[in-house]
Amino acid sequence: NITNLCPFDEVFNATRFASVYAWNRKRISNCVADYSVLYNLAPFFTFKCYGVSPTKLNDLCFTNVYADSFVIRGDEVRQIAPGQTGNIADYNYKLPDDFTGCVIAWNSNKLDSKVSGNYNYLYRLFRKSNLKPFERDISTEIYQAGNKPCNGVAGFNCYFPLRSYSFRPTYGVGHQPYRVVVLSFELLHAPATVCGPKKST
């Protein structure tokens, strides 16, 4: 009989979030998941669920729940959905087409922007091929755009693959930082360890 609440607040209220290319994953298990708490945590810009209804979450049980978190800019949030393409979905964080879970995003301009520009958040701009779903690539190998090998040196047709967002508070919403948490629900042929409040007794 599990009584402890799932530590969603640790994920959502973390002081620092990860850069999207090096997104963070927390496995959540053996706890009571009260998803209604999430609705009250922040004024969400996005709370979209796929393959599951957000209002039914509190009635369900899962084997595992994974919470992935990272920062992107406002106009990239739409890429965090099944079947999307674009720089983020292709080279940084890719959801599977049959994704079961929820994408939660909110504006973090007050936390993640600086007047002089916050350069701490990076994204991958160049990659030889698209990522597979939930693949994480943290390599910093020089990207070869031409025929000549780069031998690890940046220059003509040889690019450092990561680029930094420079978040400034005066930017338009599309270029402001957004914190994203992706909850993916895993149903294996194994005992369910993460249940809503109704199912945990």
Results as ranks from 00 to 15, higher is better:
4 N>P: 11
5 L>K: 14
6 C>Q: 06
7 P>R: 13
8 F>K: 04
9 D>M: 13
10 E>C: 08
11 V>C: 05
13 N>H: 11
16 R>D: 15
18 A>Y: 08
18 A>R: 07
19 S>D: 04
24 N>P: 04
27 R>Q: 12
29 S>P: 10
31 C>K: 06
33 A>P: 12
35 Y>F: 15
43 P>S: 11
44 F>T: 14
46 T>G: 09
47 F>W: 15
47 F>R: 11
48 K>Y: 06
49 C>A: 03
50 Y>Q: 03
53 S>G: 10
53 S>K: 13
56 K>M: 12
56 K>P: 08
56 K>I: 10
59 D>C: 08
62 F>W: 15
64 N>P: 13
64 N>M: 12
64 N>K: 11
65 V>W: 06
67 A>M: 11
67 A>D: 00
71 V>E: 00
72 I>C: 07
74 G>P: 01
74 G>E: 02
76 E>Q: 10
77 V>P: 01
80 I>A: 02
81 A>I: 04
82 P>G: 04
82 P>N: 03
83 G>H: 12
85 T>A: 11
85 T>I: 08
87 N>F: 15
89 A>F: 03
92 N>P: 02
92 N>F: 01
94 K>N: 06
95 L>Y: 02
103 V>Y: 02
108 S>V: 04
111 L>P: 06
113 S>G: 05
114 K>H: 12
115 V>M: 12
119 Y>F: 07
122 L>N: 12
124 R>A: 00
125 L>Y: 10
126 F>C: 06
126 F>N: 04
130 N>A: 15
132 K>E: 12
134 F>V: 05
138 I>F: 07
145 A>S: 08
146 G>Q: 02
149 P>S: 07
149 P>K: 12
151 N>F: 11
151 N>M: 12
152 G>A: 10
155 G>K: 08
156 F>K: 06
156 F>P: 11
157 N>Q: 02
157 N>E: 01
162 L>A: 03
162 L>C: 03
166 S>R: 05
170 T>E: 02
170 T>P: 02
174 G>I: 03
175 H>N: 04
185 F>D: 04
186 E>A: 08
186 E>Y: 08
190 A>C: 09
193 T>L: 12
193 T>A: 12
196 G>F: 11
199 K>W: 13
200 S>F: 14
201 T>H: 14
